[in-house]
Design a protein around this nucleic acid. Sequence first.
DNA 1: GCCCAGGGATGCG
DNA 2: CGCATCCATGGG
Length: 277
Amino acid sequence: MKIIKSKDKIEIKDPDDFNVIQTLNCGQIFRYVIDGQTAIVYSLDKRAKVNFDERTITIQSDDIDYFYNFFDLDTDYTYIKNELRKDEFLRLAVDYGYGIRIIKNDVYEMLISFIISANNNIGRIKKSIEYLCSHFGKNMGEYFAFPTLRELKRASIDDFRSAGLGYRAEQMYDTVQRLTDEDIAKLRLMDKDEQQKFLLSLKGVGEKVANCIMLFGLGVKDVFPVDTWINKVYNKLTNTVSLDRKKITRELTDRYKNLSGYAQQYFFYYFRDNKIK
DNA sequence: GCCCAGGGATGCG
DNA sequence: CGCATCCATGGG
């Protein structure tokens, strides 16, 4: 896989460690559209157009540097996959999702998005986020930006209900009203334990959502978010019917250590995409 | 009608 | 700490 970066585009030749559809469909990002061999990807107020076929991926954007980092193009996924393939149980999932890359998205956008994700499905999560963008985000002409914190503070509990948040509306309102830009800035400078402690202090953020925010928004890789699919993974792995997510989180993080975040994504995509129970 | 979805808050022991 | 129960909403 060869990466050629210029001022207005990134070209990736023979992308054996990058599959656009897998990377977008593995549940880490909710704002994108795939149409044939083209994907449009959104983050904050930015947009990228991604053309792809078997031999080449071309990324175009007004902010190439942002999306070079966004798609984590400096990380060697060949090494990561080879390490994880040593785990016999994980090998199938790694080979299935061979082209997954873990996105480096904006932590504030991840915070809002994953509060919505709790006990929800991806289709509804996408619709709710779209609603917030189109009603509270800046009109960029061809699309709407993700609303800034200042913009989102104008939303009422009823606005969040109209966005389809259901019982999460009050939690979202409380967190948005309480949160400051300074909190977000400080969050980036904290160590892992401090980040988790702060995130857990916010309404609508529990252990799983906090781990997703850290993994996709803060680049923390030694976390293992446990949702309903990972619960199934664990029960298949251990031949049990456990529902203890704290225990599952502990054991899987201990098993995969600093590669936990990657392992979790391969598992999630493999089980969910194949509807494995 | 029931079951499920990238779970969290609350109360109770 | 662990555990049970409740929670909006829409698609299958």
